[in-house]
C-alpha cells in the first residue's frame, strides 16, 4: 500500500508546522517529504515527482509565489498554498501564478485534507472527455446536455449564468479567482469589471440556492473568488 500512497511535498521553513503536518498526513495514508527552502523544493520536485505540494508562502530564500510560477513552467503537480489571514492579495497572486487552492492559517486538518482530496481528484481526472454530470445536493448540472436541474425541475439560466456555473462545476470544490472567471467568461478585455461577476453570481444564486443570503452551493471567498461547494462525501463526477 505504501508504495501507492501519494507523496506530498511540504515546503515549509517552520519546524513546528512541518512536525504537525507530517503527523497529520502520515496518519491519513500520505507519504511525506519536506523542503525548507525554494531551492530544496525545486530539487525534490524534479528528483521525486511528488503528487501534491503544500507550500508556505513565506520562505527564507524567495517567496512561494515565485516558486509556484517556476514549478508551473514544467509541472502540473497540484499546489496548495498555506497562507496567513489578512493576506488576500497573496492568495490571489499565488492562485494566479498557478496554485490550485489555499488554506488559511490556522487551519484544521480536516479542512486541509478536504482541499488535498479535491486537488488530487482534479489532477488525476485530467482532461475528462466523457459526458460529466455533476450533483451538488439538490442541484444537477449536465455539462454535456447543458441542462441544469434543481430537485428535478429545469432551471432556466441566461447564457452567461450557465457559463459561470459550468466553469465552477468543472472546477467543483476549487476556488476560482475573480480574474480567472472574468477572463474565462467575458474574455480578457473585461477583467476590470469585477462587479459584473458579482451581479451575475447574485442572479445565479437566486436561481439555484434555496436561500441566496445563506448559500450552500455558491460560496464567496471574500477578497479571492468563488467556490462551488459539493457534499464532501458524495460522488462527484459520474459518467
Amino acid at each position: 500500500m505504501t508504495a501507492t500512497a501519494p507523496l506530498v511535498l511540504v515546503v515549509e521553513d517552520e519546524a513546528q508546522m512541518t512536525r504537525f503536518l507530517r503527523a497529520a498526513l502520515e496518519s491519513h495514508g500520505y507519504r511525506f517529504v519536506e523542503a525548507r527552502t525554494a531551492k530544496e523544493a525545486l530539487a525534490i520536485c524534479t528528483a521525486q515527482a511528488p503528487e501534491l505540494i503544500l507550500m508556505d508562502l513565506g520562505l527564507p530564500d524567495g517567496d512561494g509565489i515565485e516558486l509556484t510560477r517556476r514549478i508551473r513552467e514544467w509541472s502540473q503537480t497540484p499546489i496548495i498554498v498555506l497562507s496567513a489571514r489578512g493576506r488576500e492579495s497573496d492568495k490571489v497572486d499565488a492562485l494566479d501564478a498557478g496554485a490550485d487552492d489555499y488554506v488559511t492559517k490556522p487551519f484544521g486538518v480536516s479542512e486541509l485534507l478536504a482541499r488535498m482530496r479535491v486537488a488530487l481528484r482534479h489532477a488525476r481526472r485530467g482532461a475528462a472527455t466523457e459526458s460529466p454530470v455533476l450533483d451538488a445536493g439538490p442541484l444537477r448540472i449536465d455539462l454535456a446536455r447543458r441542462v441544469v436541474t434543481l430537485d428535478g425541475a429545469e432551471v432556466h439560466l441566461t447564457p452567461i449564468e450557465y457559463r459561470l456555473l459550468a466553469l465552477l462545476a468543472q472546477n467543483a470544490d476549487r476556488v476560482l479567482t475573480h480574474q480567472f472567471m472574468l477572463r474565462e467568461v467575458w474574455g480578457a478585455g473585461h477583467s476590470h469589471q469585477p462587479h459584473y461577476l458579482r451581479v451575475y453570481m447574485a442572479t445565479l444564486r437566486r436561481k439555484i440556492e434555496r436561500d441566496p443570503s445563506h448559500p450552500k452551493l455558491l460560496h464567496t471567498e471574500q477578497g479571492v473568488g468563488y467556490r462551488l461547494k459539493i457534499e464532501p462525501e458524495s460522488p462527484l463526477i459520474k459518467s
Partner: peptide, 10 residues
C-alpha cells in the same frame, strides 16, 4: 461594488 446579500451570505 458588491451586493449586500453576498457579504451577508459569506
Amino acid at each position: 461594488w458588491i451586493p449586500v446579500e453576498e457579504m451577508i451570505g459569506s
